[in-house]
Design a protein around this nucleic acid. Sequence first.
DNA 1: CAAATTTATGTGGGCGCACACATAAATAAA
DNA 2: TTTATTTATGTGTGCGCCCACATAAATTTG
Lengths: 361, 361
Amino acid sequence: MTKISLKDIAIKAKVSVGTVDRVIHKRGRVSQKALKKVQDAINELNYSPNFVARSLATKKQIKIAVFIPSPSLDSFWAQPLEGIRKAENFIKDFGFSIEVFTYNDQHPELIMQMTPQIMQGGFSCILAAPNNKEEFNQFFDQCKQNKIPYVQINTYLDRNDDLFICYIGQDSFGSGKLAAKLLDFTTKPSDTLLILHLEKEIYNAEHLIQKEKGFKEYFKIHNNHEIDIEREIFSDIHDKKKKKKFIRQMIKLYPNLAGVFVTTSKLHFVVEEFLEYGSDRIKFVGFDLIEENLSYLKKGQITFLINQNPTQQGYLAIMGIFDYLLKDETPSKIQHLPLDVVMEENLDYYLKEIKGTTMVS
Amino acid sequence: MTKISLKDIAIKAKVSVGTVDRVIHKRGRVSQKALKKVQDAINELNYSPNFVARSLATKKQIKIAVFIPSPSLDSFWAQPLEGIRKAENFIKDFGFSIEVFTYNDQHPELIMQMTPQIMQGGFSCILAAPNNKEEFNQFFDQCKQNKIPYVQINTYLDRNDDLFICYIGQDSFGSGKLAAKLLDFTTKPSDTLLILHLEKEIYNAEHLIQKEKGFKEYFKIHNNHEIDIEREIFSDIHDKKKKKKFIRQMIKLYPNLAGVFVTTSKLHFVVEEFLEYGSDRIKFVGFDLIEENLSYLKKGQITFLINQNPTQQGYLAIMGIFDYLLKDETPSKIQHLPLDVVMEENLDYYLKEIKGTTMVS
DNA sequence: CAAATTTATGTGGGCGCACACATAAATAAA
DNA sequence: TTTATTTATGTGTGCGCCCACATAAATTTG
């Protein structure tokens, strides 16, 4: 009942293990006759290589580069990083190692500066979160030139080259629809709902565009209440004066405001002001279980947060790369993770991460 | 930069690898002097064994038994099984194999009949879903006698012996609270909410008791609307006549019925009748993304389903056992998985499972 | 047809570890 | 002191695979 080994194949095909090895790795130098015998034996015995032994034998160290926004600038990224570390812990005995590079998505010009360093680091694969559309299209072009395969997480950039392995993350469009549904629980006829982008250069952030589209899509289908959908952009969130002014203006502009959908994790920057100047009817929906948002959720001032399984994103991406490099398994191109609806009552379970090496999706 | 190996330790401690091996495995036959030298070397070089090589060297096959309700009788169990298979696919190259035994929780007397077979199967570890309290306490006693460690999923049975490795699953109490919150979104003063157990022998199903407690707990804290909480038990769900009669009776008994919480995955058995005889104000909350429930969710007749991460439960349990047996890692005893609030808009993402060998939570 | 070249096949060492076995050192019994 | 006995230590083989190298067979060239 024990697994079929190379040797079993060799015996069955009446050749040496060296020949079988050559067939499996398509190294050539095998006669037609032997080739067929070996292939038949492999099929008959339903052989698949033992990747544990394979990993031990190929003593080559495999390096993976990770390129994500800095967790110290945006605490959201601590979570994917945690998943990445968890995966690293698992695959390190297979000779895999991980090197993390971080960027600031508010200063995308630095991304290009870091690119050469990453390209020349001798990495077998790159995991990147392409927050900035333009820069990362260039980055991935570089990957292509250097023949380095890559995986995307969190933000999806449509790429056609064959070095793009897969995307793992949320469906931004779907998350917009979900946000709409959550706000729609409490809408009344002729209410206003506001889509609020707290970022500059929206055009360059594909995921935000998709979220807005999804939100609007929901109300195209379900607009039984004649809800008024508005959208605004404001990026000076660190300038308190400007922020207050802006929010006052919003309240004035939209007297029937019943809900605010912030398309990033930055909802916490505006909740207080909306509550102060606006009516208490206003409900909020935003993204991500970062500390700053959680305090409002716990106080009941934010009703819903949408969680995008960040830890899982990082973990799955690394493990996918592992499968790809060690087992030659090609994953499906688009892997959408669940969009969790998080409120006070189920928050805890999302926070405590599963202990032990081997988490999983 | 390559990892420290046994040999490195041997050289540093000026002994042979055999001696190092003896120290690591506590096999004795090592002098005090040598012991100390080796321990010091291990600490200094921060050595940890390469579990890939270890697995290859210990050629022994490790068998894991899985004991869960039959997926053909309760389709919920297809999902944990999927996670189990996924994990199996990963660990099979490590010489691990899995054998699945199923039982019928409606006929717990058969559980004891199967027990000897499982105990004598030569398993290194058992994964069980202890739906029936009494029988599984006996079952786990047997595990203890036979010195076979075990992991619980989905239902938690408090056990004190040191062969109980861990529990992986939802927090039943918390899921009750969450259900209460979901129904409370639309309650009005003096509404009635009904906790409905569609099982017999509730006293023997610990998780159901906990769900009820959690539900009531929520309204102890949040009862601003003077909601009336009722609870009923009905188990003849396959007898349509009795079922209809029962539901009519409920409607009559509770004229202000605004919500029904079914504590298992069997909500689909009663939705239609409640909708037929009752007011359309009645909202439903139940568990599990099984096909029968999903059709109602998609039609908008069920608003919320609570998902208990079943696939993950199975996957994590097996991988936990793997870590436990191969890496000597002791996991934390209680691992609560997230309680996902699933509605029409985010359903899809929970259904499509991540492709590839190595999922992971 | 022998020699040189190309192509096909087999052999052996090693990855890091576990484990059986052989040997050496220390201690006890004769 | 010699011989058993116990205890300590080292060596060697193999897990399944990869890969470098040696050898053998087929083909080409002179």
